[in-house]
Write a protein that binds this DNA or RNA. Sequence first.
DNA 1: TAAATTACCATGATATACCATAAATGTTAA
DNA 2: TTAACATTTATGGTATATCATGGTAATTTA
Lengths: 157, 157
Amino acid sequence: MRKTFLFMDTVFNKVDLKGRVSLPADYRAIVKELGSEIVCYRSLVSPCIEGCPEDLLEKLAAEIEDSNDFFSQTQDDLTNLIFGDAKRFLFDSTGRIVLTEKLLKHACITDTAVFVGKGRKFQIWSPENWQKEEERIRAEVLKKRPVLNVRKSEGNI
Amino acid sequence: MRKTFLFMDTVFNKVDLKGRVSLPADYRAIVKELGSEIVCYRSLVSPCIEGCPEDLLEKLAAEIEDSNDFFSQTQDDLTNLIFGDAKRFLFDSTGRIVLTEKLLKHACITDTAVFVGKGRKFQIWSPENWQKEEERIRAEVLKKRPVLNVRKSEGNI
DNA sequence: TAAATTACCATGATATACCATAAATGTTAA
DNA sequence: TTAACATTTATGGTATATCATGGTAATTTA
């Protein structure tokens, strides 16, 4: 039994005509060990799909509930967007899910999906968009590197 | 049971055609005692591979999650870059991992890998690049000796 | 009943686990 | 201190299991 449950790495998988695609084996292992299910929704800010175990959305809901932002219009709008869009995806015995037309279109995915680990979540991109995005991020992060201190006492990663 | 878990020393190991390489025995002992796994990723600033126990990334994910910044752009970029590049490496019964083509290429490693301890993390270099890097570091440190401050140099990526 | 969705089977490619040997290191006894 | 032995470590080779993916059957839904 593993101690940590982090989505990592970048994996290219085929998408067939029905929108069927293999979830990377590592991702499946995590979801299974968590005893959870995959939830996917359109990213609010990027042309990609976001996915995470259902647990995480549960946590998000709880946090918003507990925060003093309970009546914040912004939070309200955001949760509406996410929970209104999110959908559970069960994978079959061979480890595949079937992505919906809506999601595929939002991410401009046709025949190849790029799974990108983000720790607690992951994203699904088209190869073209992911390439652009990766370049943008690398440039951006290098520019900001000196202030990437997550927490001063722990040092950087 | 040891109290501290620090990667140290410099070790030269063979890399075979499949990218297979022995993790130094000392490193394996640490990972085992932590009950963790090795995670490797391309250094952001040097032509080398960086590695650390998965725990360290877990800590980062937890901090990001607790920061109540679910929708922050910077957090988003940072997690994409780190977790998108990082990958778990399990070692087999003889203590070897299989490095990916992407990592080997980034570090210009062909048939020999140099493991360099860095405390909580370690790096993997090609012999040629490591030689240059070591010379550079020695020169740099000598130059700055009068104002050397250990705390500042802790834990960069 | 037709269309669409979901579950199951087959296969080649790839990655992983295992075995054997060689080298290095450490230990013990003379 | 040295020599003989035992243990750990590194590395080459190979069998095995896993994974991604195309195809088809079963099931649901309209």
